[in-house]
Design a protein around this nucleic acid. Sequence first.
RNA 1: GCGCCCGUAGCUCAGCAGGAUAGAGCACCAGAUUCCUAAUCUGGGGGUCGUGGGUUCAAAUCCCGCCGGGCGCACCA
Length: 584
Amino acid sequence: MNLFTHFQTAIVGLIEDLVAAGDLPHGLDVARITVEPPRDLSHGDITTNAAMVLAKPAHKNPREIAVLLAAKAEALPGVEAVEIAGPGFINMRLNKTFWQARLRDVLDASLSYGDSSFGGGVKVNVEYVSANPTGPMHVGHARGAVFGDALASLLDKAGFSVTREYYVNDAGSQVNVLARSTHLRYLEALGEDIGPIPEGYYPGDYLVPVGKALAKRDGDKWKDAPESEWLEDFKAFSIAAMMDLIKQDLDALGVEHDVFTSELDLVSAGKVDEGLAFLKEQGLLYQGVLEPPKGKLPDDWQAREQLLFKATEFGDDVDRPVQKSDGTWTYFATDMAYHLDKFRRGYASMIDVWGADHGGYVKRMQSAIKALTGGQGDLDVKLCQMVSLSENGKPFKMSKRAGTFITLRDVVDKVGKDVVRFIMLTRKNDAGLEFDFAKVTEQSRDNPVFYVQYAHARVNSVMRMAVEEMGQDVITDEAIGGADLNRLVDAAELNLIKVLAQWPRMVESAAAAHEPHRVAFYLNDVAAEFHGLWNKGKDNKSLRFIVANDKELTLARLAMIRAVANVVASGLAVFGVTPVNEMR
RNA sequence: GCGCCCGUAGCUCAGCAGGAUAGAGCACCAGAUUCCUAAUCUGGGGGUCGUGGGUUCAAAUCCCGCCGGGCGCACCA
């Protein structure tokens, strides 16, 4: 349970009682009432702004309302003390029994602790990666991949019905380039000297095996044939090969998708025409000429009449072209059709994860969705900023030509998927991220991956030690599970439990904000609290987890630290990171 | 020129749908280990939250202007 929403409901109930008793007027809006942890823990465990929010509509002094509410709040189960502070905050301190019961919650729920019905089963579509099928993934893709994957897991944990989707851009001109590049490699495989790969082709040697495969399959059949004869086939073959490559990369990263949607299929199925026909009916398409962009003018710019979508009616800055001069659809047109398709599949709530360089595209897509769904659909675009690679602070310059191009696979092979995933989630998606090969594998307090993993490992270490000291017939899962949690009364222990009990709320708020990085900071807090308590045992032997002459207390404390491992593992599961039992 | 994002301690960053005296790590200073892993912990100094207005009982948080940085600006995806 989220203890804050629990008390929010309770407080609203108290307000209703006061209304019924005539102490407060009818018709008060309680939506703005919050129950949250206070900034300063000395203020108590939970605090509410209820009195301040109600003051104006109730035509009463906030402190007056606070007095009424506080008197009733004292009787709420779990509440130990209530204080009124500042301009009208009502601060509540919860009793030991309440916290011990929360620890029981953690232990009972195990890995599912923090699962919530917050999302109410609402369908959400999260689209991420969607890298062009023209080559293996590079590090830039990794951030979006991990972010999208973690966000999807987070939403899932928070009770949304999530679909993880990948949009395959297999219809544009890029894939024609891919096909031609493969053809070159095909010629090469037949023994021709192709020389250096010309400008405008994909130079990567990942196409070499694709060319070879085609040479093996078809011999020299396409050697002198005109492009029109082999293009479609080479394209399909190359795309399939590239998607294999990408899926292998995703697999190495532990990133999964439920659905791969092909742009080509979408176009062939007539979805683009369908979507545009709808816009036309609405009178949202017209032939027009766009103003030249201000500032630096492209060299080849020329005024041209084209088919435009009235994006400005839905909040965009200019109207947007949907058709290229050769008559084919723009990327935007197919993307509109794609999002309409998602909406029709039941996803009113859509999240797209893009690179920051696509930021200029957000408004037009959102305006299109407004138009296409009559305002029923919602798109949140999460832009992921650049990842800059470095080693011991020295920036890693990436260059395809110089051969220092770093693929996703290189990074995963070097530091492991768990490190990559965790680090990618330690910053807000819209902030730049530095990935230092030396720092991310360092075993120190600086390195959040290590620090959090170490907390999990340390719990296991203590468990092993306890078995060693007290015997495996004493320290059993059953004994720990049945431990008397009332023995946990020290303030330091209760503080640790309090941090653990924040997890359900953390899941909900991070999910609501679409910000998985909050989980990383929370896990760091959990680890800090745990390491802190461990260390207190150094100064004060009575606080050690293993107390030789007190089996019951030891079992209770082992239950407590098992809960720590539980919450850490539950959080890491959202990140797709495997908790470790030993630091090696 | 326009749009989007960002500006918080010396450095790297948190700040939870506006809440009380703005936090953490690093670095710096002072400490802790015959002891469950010191791979850690405790304490201390350090901030006009870029800036000027506005809304509010309450603004780092919301709105507007300005300054500084990043990204993007038909017919590429």
